[in-house]
């Protein structure tokens, strides 16, 4: 005991250094998963208690509907059709339950709701960030202003392409346009460029407006400071984009999330020509060619 008392501080400091070294070499994901399982639940409970106490419980239905409408609005904003042919997004509403100091926040939806890493997060004002990792009931979001974030972006008017990075100490973003002679002026709106397969960023989410154009020290890129639409210090209800809402698989994944989603997806299935959707659409008709169980049952009943 006496020896342990003398050695303990040095030993613990050594363990800390070993942890730092290990996490630098190979990320200690199991430890983070453990942390998000234990502390995510506690944060969720604390936040839910605060919300219940302030009587916001009955707003949840409205919040859910609001989220869905917001996703529809976002999809409707898209002027250029994307290769994914999605006419809507599957989304999950989430509350912000924790603010970190590494340019990250915690939201109260996780892999149980289908949230996975590299999914877009936005709120009523504009882009918030992307999912960094997800635990069972919570997920960590990297904000657009984090020092490590970089987002493909374009000017909404001229469609010039660039890259948005965080300037964390000032709460601003820096836009670097690839075309050094591109015209950019304060007040221009900046939206996301969109990524392959919609991950991590879906296209045309508003990011912010150009605040000042920086004088170019070199002629390789054109840089400007962007004031984000989202108020990162006062985030509350956000929306996570789970994926495009197009085929039958998507409906299965989001089954039980409200009748509207299913109805929209049925409409899609009628128009679609791929195999799964056709099978779904044919099954209720009970065609003679289908050898499915439901078809034979219907035949017996008749």
């Amino acid at each position: 005991m006496r020896a342990a008392g003398r050695r303990a501080p040095a030993l613990l400091a050594l363990v800390s250094v070993a942890l730092i070294a290990a996490d630098t070499l190979t990320p200690l994901e199991p430890l983070r998963a453990f942390g998000s399982a234990v502390y995510g639940g506690l944060e969720d409970a604390a936040s839910a208690g605060v919300r219940w106490a302030s009587g916001e419980r009955r707003l949840e239905e409205l919040e859910r509907e609001n989220t869905r409408l917001r996703a529809d609005l976002l999809a409707a904003r898209r002027t250029v059709p994307s290769p994914a042919q999605a006419d809507g997004y599957r989304v999950a509403p989430a509350h912000v339950i924790g603010f970190g100091r590494d340019g990250t926040i915690t939201v109260d939806t996780g892999s149980d709701s289908g949230v996975d890493r590299d999914m877009t997060v936005f709120d009523g004002d504009g882009l918030v960030g992307r999912i960094l990792r997800s635990g069972p009931g919570t997920a960590t979001v990297q904000l657009a202003t984090a020092s490590g974030a970089s987002i493909g972006a374009r000017l909404e008017g001229s469609r010039e392409v660039g890259l948005v990075t965080g300037v964390p100490e000032r709460g601003l973003l820096r836009l670097s346009l690839l075309n050094p002679s591109a015209g950019v002026k304060p007040g221009d709106r900046v939206v996301t460029l969109g990524s392959r397969d919609m991950r991590p960023y879906v296209p045309d989410v508003p990011i912010g407006t150009v605040a000042t154009v920086e004088p170019a020290p070199d002629a390789l890129t054109r840089t400007a400071l962007v004031r984000p639409f989202a108020r990162f210090t006062a985030l509350d209800l956000v929306t996570v984009v789970l994926g495009p809402q197009a085929d039958g698989d998507a409906v299965d994944a989001s089954a039980g999330r409200g009748a509207t989603t299913a109805r929209t997806a049925e409409g899609d299935a009628d128009e679609d020509t791929d195999g799964d959707a056709d099978a779904d659409a044919d099954a209720p008709k009970g065609g003679p060619k289908s050898g499915s169980k439901s078809g034979s049952k219907k035949a017996k009943a008749a």
Partner: peptide, 20 residues
């Protein structure tokens, strides 16, 4: 605990060393 509590996204062990 502060190193692994969810929104944290820094090297694990950083706060443990300092607070130890």
């Amino acid at each position: 605990a502060a190193d692994i509590a969810p929104p944290a996204d820094h090297t694990i062990g950083r706060l443990a060393l300092v607070m130890c």
